[in-house]
């Protein structure tokens, strides 16, 4: 069990497991996510990585930023690949050919490699019950190939394959709620996190590593290139996503939903949208309906989440 207190002073004494010299863009949210995830634990970790920004920028030619054993094989199969590694570990430990050093297994994937092309492989690995943690760093579009829409792209966003045009003003559909879909696999642990709330994120990773079986954490990871925002605002936006309830922080542990961070005051979704060029057209005269629809969606989902959490809270009260 990881016992280092969750205080930055203490955590900072550990060695980084993800090195500088990686080639992610300045101000990218993904390396912050990776660093916080790996810093949360002192278990030995082996990771797989779906093709994407993180992968191409962290391991290129003879340079790797990874200080843990790491494997990338393709785009749609980070979960299947790590399940093979994990199966080999179990096999060799069971046969007494290697020691059980409580190795933890992580798969990292972006939203494209997780929500879309890697969805089947992820679903399969979760159902099979591998002892693994899948981390989706969700930047809400295919950023590596140049900002194409994914099923994680929110309603209204301007991307290169759903550009805000005269007839179609950005992405017409809402995003897929992958965290809930993963929870519907009845895995022991599914959660949503944000690098702006580093302590909540690290607590979730720690909790996940103490649970045997498949775990899933969906982590918002701002991309200033794709979101058309500033290079310094990844953390600010990831906090605003939480404060507006656009990206609520919650966990579903053995079927029980709990909101882990409740914003003191729920801010309007426009606070999250307005700093991002991908939503600029939504603020143009005549597009007020888009803002309304975005707000309605956030409100509805937040209400639903609160009801779910409340239902479990009531249950707990009753049994006490």
């Amino acid at each position: 069990m990881t016992t280092i207190p969750l205080r930055l002073k203490e955590i900072s004494r550990q060695e980084d497991r993800f090195a500088y010299g990686h080639r992610m863009c300045a101000g990218c949210g993904a390396p912050i996510v990776v660093k916080q995830v790996l810093m949360a634990t002192d278990y030995p970790v082996i990771a797989s990585n779906a093709t994407g920004c993180l992968e191409v920028s962290s391991c290129i030619s003879e340079y790797t930023a990874w200080k843990i054993p790491w494997i990338h094989s393709a785009f749609e199969n980070a979960a299947a690949t790590i399940s093979g590694v994990e199966a080999m570990y179990r096999s060799l430990v069971r046969q007494g050919r290697i020691d059980d050093r409580q190795v933890k297994f992580i798969a990292f994937g972006g939203d494209g490699g997780t929500y879309d092309i890697g969805f089947q492989s992820l679903s399969g690995a979760m159902e099979r019950g591998h002892d693994m943690l899948y981390i989706c760093y969700d930047n809400e579009a295919y950023m590596n190939t140049g900002i194409q829409r994914s099923s994680a792209t929110p309603f209204g966003a301007n991307t290169t394959t759903c550009p805000a045009g005269d007839v179609i003003p950005g992405k017409p559909q809402n995003r897929k709620d992958l965290t809930k879909i993963m929870a519907a696999h009845n895995i022991p642990y599914a959660a949503q996190a944000s690098p702006g709330h580093w302590m909540d994120l690290m607590k979730k990773v720690r909790k996940a590593f103490e649970i045997k079986g498949p775990k899933f954490i969906n982590i918002i990871a701002p991309c200033n290139r794709g979101w058309r925002s500033r290079t310094d605002d990844a953390i600010m936006l990831s906090k605003l996503a939480v404060d507006t309830c656009y990206w609520p922080l919650y966990e579903i542990e053995n079927g029980v939903t709990r909101i882990t961070v409740r914003p003191r005051e729920k801010k309007p979704v426009t606070d999250f949208l307005k700093g991002q060029g991908r939503f600029k057209h939504m603020f143009a005269p005549g597009n007020e309906w888009m803002i309304e629809r975005a707000q309605e969606y956030v409100d509805r989902e937040w209400e639903r989440l609160q009801k779910e959490a409340a239902c479990w809270a009531e249950d707990e009260e009753k049994t006490e």
Partner: peptide, 17 residues
């Protein structure tokens, strides 16, 4: 296969600034 962990340290990105 890359055998040296954290070898990205040899690639300095400070000049991007």
């Amino acid at each position: 296969v890359i055998l040296e962990p954290g070898s990205s340290a040899k690639f300095k990105t400070g000049s991007w600034r």
